[in-house]
Design a binder for these strands. Structure first.
Length: 218
DNA sequence: GAGTACCC
DNA sequence: TTGT
C-alpha cells in the first residue's frame, strides 16, 4: 500500500549519492519493468531459481539464477563464476540485449561510461529473505562498476564502506530503482535486510534484483 | 542488537 | 562467513 503511494510520488529520474562513486537512480527502470520481468521468467525457465549453499554448508534464503557468459555460484567449495550452470549442465542463458542496454545506460548516467557487463546475477527474495553484509569481490576487473536493479517488493538496503565496521547508509529501494557503485565504492560492503511481508502488483510476494557485473578479465 | 551454536 |  505505502509502496504504491511511494511509487506514484517518487521523484522518478532523481539521483541520490550514497557515497563517492555510488548513486541511486530512482525509478529509472520502472517503465521497462514488465519487459525485464518477462525476460527473467524466460531465463528462469532455462536456468531455474535455486537456493545455493554457502561454503559453511548452509542454504541461502535468497534464490538465484544467472544469465550471461558466466554465472555466480556458491557451494561448499566457495564462491566463483562458472560458464555452465552446475544444476542443468548447460551454459547459462544469454544476457538479453535489452537488459544489457539498461545496465550500460544506468552506468553511464552514474558516471561510469564504457561499462561492458557480461553477466547478470538474478536474485529472488521472498518475505523473510535477506542478504547479510558482504563485498562483491569475485570479479577480477575492479574498474567495472556494479549495477543493481530493484523490482517488486521494496527492500531496506545498507551501503557501507571498505571495512565491515564502516558507517552505513540505510535506504529503501523500491520497484524500478537502480543502484550503481564503482570506483572508490567498488568494494563497499552492502546488505539487504529481511524482506517484509507484502504484495506488489508487478511481482506479487517477491522482490527481484538484477545485478549486472563484468566477470571477465580486465 | 548482541552473542552463540552449528551447517559441512 | 553473500548463513540460520
Amino acid at each position: 500500500m505505502n509502496d504504491l503511494i511511494d511509487t506514484a510520488l517518487a521523484d522518478e529520474g532523481s539521483r541520490e549519492t550514497l557515497a563517492e562513486g555510488a548513486m541511486i537512480l530512482r525509478g529509472r527502470a520502472r517503465s521497462q519493468a514488465p519487459a525485464l520481468l518477462a525476460a527473467v521468467a524466460a531465463i528462469a525457465a532455462e536456468a531455474p531459481f535455486r537456493r545455493m549453499m554457502t561454503p559453511g554448508g548452509l542454504t541461502m534464503s535468497v534464490a538465484m539464477t544467472n544469465c550471461g557468459a558466466q554465472g555466480w555460484v556458491t557451494d561448499r567449495h566457495g564462491y566463483r563464476y562458472t560458464p555452465v550452470d552446475p544444476q542443468t549442465g548447460r551454459p547459462w542463458p544469454a544476457l538479453p540485449e535489452a537488459l544489457r542496454r539498461l545496465a550500460v545506460e544506468a552506468a553511464a548516467e552514474a558516471g561510469f561510461p564504457g561499462f561492458s557487463p557480461d553477466v547478470c546475477l538474478i536474485n529472488r527474495y521472498e518475505p523473510g529473505s535477506k542478504l547479510s553484509l558482504h563485498q562483491d569481490r569475485d570479479e577480477p576487473d575492479r574498474s567495472a562498476p556494479i549495477v543493481s536493479v530493484s523490482l517488486g517488493l521494496p527492500a531496506v538496503f545498507l551501503f557501507g564502506g571498505l571495512t565491515r565496521d564502516a558507517p552505513k547508509t540505510r535506504t529503501r529501494l523500491a520497484h524500478g530503482d537502480i543502484v550503481v557503485w564503482g570506483g572508490p565504492s567498488r568494494l563497499a560492503y552492502h546488505a539487504v535486510q529481511t524482506i517484509k511481508p507484502g504484495s506488489h502488483p508487478a511481482t506479487a510476494d517477491q522482490r527481484i534484483n538484477l545485478t549486472f557485473r563484468k566477470a571477465g578479465p580486465p
